[in-house]
């Protein structure tokens, strides 16, 4: 079978975010870029599916600025993907443009039997591309998936909903699966894997090659701001009995949150 994973490169979770002087975005200098953490679960699940089905191939695709984003593809190749598709795009394409580019690339490079994504990207935290891709490709999707099995061309998934509740879904035929944390334990890229990844093919597309115009992005972000500074902490001194009694009265009478 032919399997595809869609990934995104994002700032590392430990990155400190600062705002550009013109407030039109965040400062990208000095940021460490990594594969979106949820996409690592998607890559791992796709590799497991490939390994369980002899003769399968696994491709990985990203939409983003090639100069940096190609590194995320290399990471996925080092983990075990066979080939990669780099769709060069400026920073600010919106979710719909991204989904259109992915759908068009799937049309050109496919057909794929299964598509994996991460449940959301930790930068804009929209959680939109999985569902948009499902619509544009005309196949069902399941997002926030924490358990996955594939049998006879169909998928069975467990997805997390609210308050720790879970749904078990069956998806018939090809589908888009959005991975959540807990789905698996992503493997590290081994040194031989990293060496091999350098020789694996990366195919280049521009947005224009895929019939997508970044100017058609329908959502834009501006006026970036940092959260307001919080007032200095009030430390409650003393013995535990006195500390806890003071805290409760402060919450009740000063903060008025009880």
């Amino acid at each position: 079978m032919k399997i595809l994973v869609c990934i995104k490169q994002v700032p590392d979770t430990t990155a400190k975010i600062s705002i550009k002087a013109d407030k039109q975005g965040v400062e990208t200098n000095g940021i460490k870029w990594v594969m979106n953490p949820y996409d690592e679960f998607a890559v791992e699940e796709a590799i497991k599916l490939k390994e369980a089905n002899a003769g399968s191939t696994l491709s990985v695709i990203t939409v983003g600025p090639k100069a940096r984003a190609v590194e995320a593809l290399r990471t996925a190749l080092a983990m075990g993907a066979d080939d990669a598709i780099m769709v060069d795009a400026e920073e600010n394409v919106d979710n719909l443009c991204t989904a259109k580019a992915l759908a068009a690339a799937i049309e050109k490079e496919g057909p794929f039997d299964m598509v994996f994504t991460g449940k959301l990207a930790i930068d804009d935290q929209q959680s939109a591309v999985t569902q948009m891709l499902s619509e544009l490709c005309g196949i069902p999707h399941a997002n926030v998936v924490s358990k996955y099995t594939f049998a006879n061309g169909n998928s069975e998934v467990e997805r997390e909903i609210e308050g720790g509740a879970k749904e078990v879904l069956e998806l018939k035929g090809k589908s888009v699966i959005g991975a959540n944390k807990g789905l698996n334990t992503p493997r590290y890229a081994s040194l031989p894997g990293i060496m091999k990844a350098k020789k694996k093919p990366v195919k280049d597309y521009s947005l224009a090659d895929l019939g997508v115009d970044a100017q058609q992005s329908k959502v834009s972000y501006k006026e970036f701001s940092l959260p307001p500074e919080r007032p200095a902490v009030k430390m409650i001194e003393g013995e535990p009995a006195g500390q806890t009694a003071s805290l409760v009265s402060l919450l009740k009478d000063e903060a008025k949150v009880l």
Binding site: A15, I17, V26, D123, D124, V219, F224, L226, P227
Partner: peptide
């Protein structure tokens, strides 16, 4: 277009502007 996790919403004429957290609240954007 689609915007999720908005924390402020304003309507001017027929156009919405929304404030939303990015990087899970490390910053905000309009």
């Amino acid at each position: 277009g689609f915007v999720s996790d908005a924390v402020e919403i304003n309507l001017s004429g027929e156009d919405l502007t929304l404030k939303k957290p990015m990087y899970s609240g490390k910053c905000f954007a309009q």
